[in-house]
Amino acid sequence: MGMLQEFKDFAVKGNVIDLAVGVIIGGAFGKIVDSVVADLIMPLVGAVIGKLDFSNLYVVLGNVPPGTEATLAALKKAGVPVFAYGNFITVGVNFAILAFIIFLMVKQINKLKKEAPAPEAPPVVTPEDVLLLREIRDSLKK
């Protein structure tokens, strides 16, 4: 029964729930970034470079069966080994954009966080003997 209680305490802690929410939102956000890269950025890059479709950049590493269409999907379906570097370029751009967006988000969150005020230093307590010596000194000056 002790291990079950420990698990329950662990599972309902705020950090675990926050992590679960973060993973779910991160997955959805990843799909948005994938769409931005695949549907918006890579076509623009392809248009600038020369209307390249990065997803279909590959090098055939094996023999192509006769009658197989010369597209990446058809070659993979036929079991032909291909070096699909175009997909790697797309995933690399996707990662760079995602990392930059997360950097900007963390930067803004850090700006929004209020710095905790420094704790006030405790007042200096003058020892009683020093106070007495000051009283004596002051009385002798009079």
Rank of each mutant, 00 (worst) to 15 (best):
G2L: 11
M3C: 01
L4H: 06
E6I: 15
F7S: 07
D9R: 14
D9V: 02
D9N: 14
F10G: 01
K13Y: 08
K13E: 08
G14N: 07
N15Q: 07
N15P: 00
N15D: 15
I17S: 09
I17Y: 07
D18M: 10
D18Y: 06
A20E: 02
A20N: 10
V21Y: 12
G22P: 01
G22M: 12
G22I: 10
I24N: 09
I25W: 06
G27P: 06
F29R: 00
V33L: 14
V33Y: 08
V33Q: 09
V33H: 09
D34N: 14
D34K: 12
D34T: 06
V36I: 15
L40G: 05
M42D: 00
G46K: 02
V48D: 01
I49G: 05
K51M: 04
K51P: 00
N56H: 09
L57N: 05
L57P: 00
Y58A: 13
V60M: 07
V60R: 02
L61D: 05
N63I: 12
V64L: 01
P65I: 03
P66S: 08
E69D: 11
A70G: 02
T71E: 09
T71S: 15
T71Y: 07
L72A: 13
A74R: 14
L75K: 07
L75P: 02
K76C: 06
K76V: 08
K76I: 07
K76P: 08
P81Q: 03
V82G: 07
V82D: 01
F83G: 02
A84G: 04
A84T: 00
G86D: 00
G86N: 02
N87D: 11
N87Y: 06
N87A: 14
V91I: 10
G92A: 09
G92E: 04
V93S: 02
N94V: 04
A96H: 03
A96D: 04
I97M: 06
I97L: 15
I97H: 03
L98D: 01
A99G: 00
F100T: 08
I101Y: 01
I102W: 07
F103A: 11
L104I: 09
M105H: 01
M105E: 10
V106Y: 05
I109W: 15
L112C: 07
L112Q: 12
K113A: 12
E115D: 10
A118T: 10
P119H: 05
E120Q: 10
A121F: 07
A121C: 01
V124T: 10
T126Y: 15
T126M: 12
D129H: 08
V130R: 12
L133I: 04
R134W: 11
R134E: 15
E135R: 15
E135I: 10
R137F: 10
R137N: 10
R137A: 09
S139N: 14
S139F: 08
K141L: 08
